[in-house]
Design a protein around this nucleic acid. Structure first.
Lengths: 120, 120
DNA sequence: TACGGTACTATAAAAAAGGTAAGTAATGGG
DNA sequence: CCCATTACTTACCTTTTTTATAGTACCGTA
């Protein structure tokens, strides 16, 4: 997840597609290995960096930071820094971020149904 | 989208996460640059390979084939080959595939709302 | 016999995403 | 002065995804 190369075909394609299909636009924002889990946890209320880290299995600090920054950039969550030592940073979903809740829940249910299909 | 390396940390992480969070499991299936658009088109009914190609801007045949194969593998859609020349192959969502429709519509709406936020 | 249309496949290379490991700053406690 | 704690950052490397380009089989038509 470095900075995206704005001259690449990939960048162009993503833009065109996101432009025409809002569901792809949405996917570009909440897609990525860890974004959905982060949002899912935050739908229950604010959390600190360290709490998220403990909550999410195997995520590295680097990945967590990167995803949080991306989500912040897209206005999905807010980042509040408390001027304390050791530092304390709290993340909370914005209004539009909370509006992801029903989508996440639906994906969860769909995922469950799909998993069960396989077993049968 | 070649075959995935089952010894990588990335593979492990995806598996663990998908196991615990069904929304991530779902995202692993319908995530990917083109999957959502393909499914979105197919929610209106069956389509041929060439129709999909024309409908989706800039997709290469390789990408279309790969995504369709993946979706078929996951039982999201069916592939019907007609023994004709020139060949004719028709793709159609399965039952569980059609169940994605509300999710896609919700993502679409959310995407619209989010887009408008930025402009204001 | 060359050509066109359909739905692919193969190979290579570029780009993006993700992972590892180490380091930073500030400060209160021992 | 050293250590622990928290929330990062940096540099580098591997894996995965996406793109580019070319080629295949089939057969009816010209």
């Amino acid at each position: 997840m470095g900075r995206i190369k704005e001259t690449s075909t990939n960048f162009e394609n993503k833009k065109i597609l996101a432009d025409e299909c809002s569901e792809v636009y949405a996917a570009n924002i909440i897609g990525g290995q860890w974004s959905l889990v982060i949002c899912s946890w935050l739908t229950n209320g604010k959390m600190r960096f360290g709490e998220l880290k403990k909550a999410i299995p195997n995520i590295t600090e680097r990945m967590l930071t990167m995803q949080l920054r991306k989500l912040e950039e897209y206005n999905i969550l807010t980042r509040t820094v408390y001027a304390e030592v050791p530092p304390k940073v709290v993340y909370e979903l914005t209004e539009i971020g909370y509006e992801l809740k029903p989508i996440i829940r639906q994906m969860e249910k769909w995922g469950e149904r799909h998993k069960n299909l396989k077993i049968e």
